[in-house]
Simulated assay, not measured.
Amino acid sequence: MKTMTLLSACTKGGIATVAKINASGALKQRLISFGLMKGAQITMLECGLTKSTFEVKIGSVTIALRREEAELIEVSDVR
């Protein structure tokens, strides 16, 4: 069984696979439009000093997420 963790717990340079997105409605559609969906590989590029913002790369797309958004994304295979 794979261990799940929240994207907000990942560290700079970490790579993980999206396991589940616990968002709904417009937010979930926006995340999917950026390629952030189950099975996608994410690289954590930057974490704000207070971990209130996160910069992640999905494929060739780089996006910034707020802590509240990052806490809605469960990841596995964190390395």
Rank of each mutant, 00 (worst) to 15 (best):
M1R: 13
M1V: 15
K2I: 10
K2F: 14
T3H: 14
M4N: 14
T5G: 12
T5L: 12
T5N: 13
T5S: 15
L6E: 12
L7R: 01
L7N: 04
S8N: 08
S8K: 05
A9M: 10
A9D: 11
A9R: 13
A9C: 10
C10L: 11
T11A: 15
K12I: 08
K12W: 01
G13R: 01
G14P: 01
G14M: 10
V18C: 07
A19N: 10
A19P: 00
A19F: 11
K20T: 15
K20C: 11
K20H: 13
K20D: 13
I21A: 02
N22G: 03
N22W: 00
A23S: 12
S24M: 11
G25C: 06
G25S: 05
A26E: 14
L27V: 09
K28R: 15
R30G: 04
L31C: 03
I32R: 13
I32F: 13
S33V: 05
S33H: 05
S33N: 10
F34K: 07
G35P: 00
G35C: 02
G35Q: 01
G35I: 02
L36E: 04
M37G: 12
G39M: 02
G39F: 05
G39R: 06
G39N: 07
A40N: 07
I42E: 02
T43K: 14
L45W: 01
L45A: 00
E46M: 08
C47I: 09
C47S: 09
C47T: 10
G48S: 12
G48Q: 06
L49E: 14
T50C: 09
T50P: 00
T50I: 07
K51W: 05
K51C: 09
S52M: 11
S52T: 14
S52C: 11
T53K: 12
F54N: 03
F54Y: 13
E55W: 06
E55F: 05
V56L: 08
V56T: 04
K57C: 08
I58W: 03
G59S: 09
G59R: 03
S60H: 10
S60P: 06
S60W: 02
V61T: 10
T62P: 04
T62A: 09
T62K: 14
I63M: 07
I63V: 13
I63K: 08
I63L: 11
A64I: 14
A64H: 11
A64Y: 08
A64L: 10
L65D: 04
L65H: 06
R66H: 15
R66I: 10
R67S: 09
R67W: 07
R67H: 14
E69W: 07
E71N: 12
L72R: 10
I73T: 02
I73G: 04
I73R: 05
I73W: 00
E74Y: 13
E74W: 12
V75M: 04
V78D: 02
V78K: 04
R79L: 11
